[in-house]
């Protein structure tokens, strides 16, 4: 496709997204943002941010899951995610320690949701063990379930599952890969010195 034709298609697609939004026809809007942990995909419903995905997850596969679980009318549209993109930028630049965004938790339910709702209680720069997290939710025996809840967190970074570690201090797992988890923990432990 020629550059002109590609430009024409881009214009048509963004006009389509605007008209669709004006008519309330979008179930999920999404956009990509660059970050120190690689490119991220942010997705939102009219209720709030519903998904943050890492490159390793395969964005098209994530769009497919959103189509299945939320609605098939998924379109690229940046505007509903501008605030989230700006706050993530600030977070990675050490000028923000918490997020003020509406979140849509519809992709989680049951105990997983309970754990994910409790995760923001772990403050910026702090970590807890899976065991402590289980105790924090009033189910001290549910250590494995806490692990699952963290591993399936649909809103990583915004909901800080990266602050949960193994009891021996080792990293445990992370949806975005251990390297990403390490970057986030280093960033939060060493505020202000990584602003490059």
């Amino acid at each position: 496709m020629s550059e002109l034709a590609m430009h024409e298609m881009d214009v048509l697609r963004s006009q389509l997204a605007e008209r669709a939004a004006a008519e309330g026809l979008i179930d999920v809007s999404y956009r990509l943002v660059d970050s120190p942990v690689g490119q991220l995909m942010l997705a939102a419903t009219e209720r709030g941010i519903v998904r943050v995905a890492f490159t390793a997850e395969d964005f098209d596969a994530v769009l497919g899951t959103l189509a299945q679980k939320v609605g098939v009318r998924v379109l690229h549209r940046a505007a509903p995610l501008d605030a989230a993109a700006a706050q993530l930028d600030e977070y990675f630049a050490h000028s923000r320690t918490g997020f003020e965004l509406s979140l849509d938790h519809r992709l989680s339910s049951g105990y997983r949701l309970e754990v994910q709702l409790a995760l923001p209680k772990i403050g910026y720069g702090h970590t807890v063990s899976y065991k402590e997290m289980a105790a924090l939710t009033g189910r001290p025996a549910a250590v494995r379930a806490v692990g699952t809840a963290c591993a399936t967190n649909p809103l990583p970074i915004l909901v800080p599952c990266h602050r949960v570690l193994r009891s021996d201090g080792s990293l445990g797992g992370y949806l975005g890969g251990l390297e990403a988890k390490k970057v986030l923990l280093d960033l939060e432990h060493d505020p202000g010195t990584r602003g490059d």
Partner: peptide, 20 residues
């Protein structure tokens, strides 16, 4: 397949041929 693909993928796959 339980649902059709995300509409974004429909636009991406077929947008050019429909414009043609």
């Amino acid at each position: 397949m339980t649902t059709n693909p995300a509409f974004e993928l429909v636009v991406r796959r077929h947008g050019t041929s429909v414009l043609r």
